[in-house]
Design a protein around this nucleic acid. Structure first.
Lengths: 238, 238
DNA sequence: ATGATTTCTGCACACCGTTCAAAGTTCATA
DNA sequence: TATGAACTTTGAACGGTGTGCAGAAATCAT
């Protein structure tokens, strides 16, 4: 690796770091090539040597952030013994919410309108992270299977109901798991996502004092509905 | 009402209509004063006679859209007899999702990043519509009470846990309803919101062929968890 | 040391929201 | 009906944005 390659890698990374800082400070809209270049003592045009366009930079950012989010969730899950599937679900959910609260702009970048006109690419690190998240959630549901079967509803799903990538991955990672479990996984995802999205976008701010308590109730109910026993948290508000 | 007032009202409305069309066509980011003025054969500066700033226009748009969404949901609910609370919940949920699919950019405007740097005001039509939505949902939960009590979790909530406006409204509209029911209402909201948000923002696109079926399963499960009987829909996929 | 490759500048273009003086228009009133 | 006030619109300006491109500058391989 030549000296120039090293410097190039450093510059590429520095751009991303500054972009992240700008985003954390002023929201996704504050990510401007000119502002980045200004902080680096460069001209805006110079950035085009590292990222072909602004959206590519945003794409990379989303990939990094999503990966970080999934890393956090996986780590939280793995901190709970595998023989406590309910605890693992709660850990995952709380990790996601915690990360979202700590990185609200990151959450918006991942799950909201990144930038006006931004179109997420079909693949790339972000999709890969989302795939990891999906697999992780499927694992949580699989750990509750077949006890959770009664929560899966009576509709009969087939593998053809799902995208090839997801179906393939689910069948390989969790042999014997029926398609209905994957549908349930998506519902679990939605359930973990809903309240956090509302909270991050400020829709709960004026309504409830401790959104975390409501979220915890929701996840606890989710765990119970999967036929698992939720961790014995104190039922009092924090 | 003078002639000038009439023309002014028409112009004010036309600006909003064009803004809506631009948004539907190119997303929230396509709402530009210059583009609006261009379509109206005016100059951008002229718009400032009608809206003090661009964000005010967006705020009005959000108010209109949110009101439309809540109107739709309420109408769908009222089309189901009151002695079928489960059916009313399903109707509300499906109406919300249907509206979101028909107006994805509107949904983004309401529940996502409207525009980079946009800060939603504390009050206004949007907050009022959100308040109506909240009340509507509380009504749906109230209709399931006290049967739904077991879904409310064991945490003990007090009225002080909620915003004054919400607490006041809930106590007045549904006397005797305990605070725990309001917490449950927020959870119901989150549950209705999660999958729709994921779908609108494209996170389910590559994963599942018929997100509507999964959503219906989720809402059905929600209805059951409230101790109600869901409408007897056919269990087959559409 | 030379030639190729990469990086960066500086300028240009087109777009954006916003402001403002001046011109144009409408309206109420004397 | 004439006049003055109120309102609307223009057009230019300012500062901001992403994006291209010619050419200068720096770096690297040979």
């Amino acid at each position: 690796m030549s000296r120039r390659d090293r410097i190039r890698a450093e510059t590429t990374a520095e751009i991303k770091v500054i972009a992240l800082r700008l985003m954390a400070a002023g929201g996704p809209g504050a990510i401007s090539l000119r502002a980045i270049a200004r902080e680096m003592g460069m001209t805006a045009g110079a950035i085009y040597s590292y990222y072909p366009t602004r959206d590519d930079l945003v794409t990379r950012l989303i990939g990094d952030l999503y990966t970080e989010l999934v890393d956090t969730a996986e780590a939280a899950r793995d901190a709970v013994p595998a023989d406590d599937p309910g605890g693992r679900i709660l850990a995952w959910a709380e990790a996601v919410r915690g990360w979202a609260l700590a990185n609200p702009e990151g959450f918006r970048l991942i799950y909201g309108d990144a930038v006006p006109g931004y179109q997420p690419p079909e693949d790339g690190p972000a999709r890969e992270a989302e795939h990891r998240a999906c697999t992780g959630l499927t694992g949580l549901v699989a750990a509750a299977w077949p006890g959770a079967e009664r929560a899966a509803g009576s509709r009969d799903y087939g593998w053809s109901d799902f995208g090839e990538v997801l179906a393939e991955a689910a069948r390989e990672a969790f042999p014997g798991l029926p398609p209905a479990a994957v549908a349930l996984t998506l519902r679990v995802w939605g359930r973990m996502h809903g309240l956090v999205a509302l909270e991050i976008y400020g829709h709960l701010r004026a309504l409830v004092r401790d959104p975390g308590a409501v979220y915890r109730d929701e996840i606890t109910d989710l765990i119970v509905s999967l036929g698992l026993t939720p961790p014995a948290g104190d039922d009092r508000r924090e």
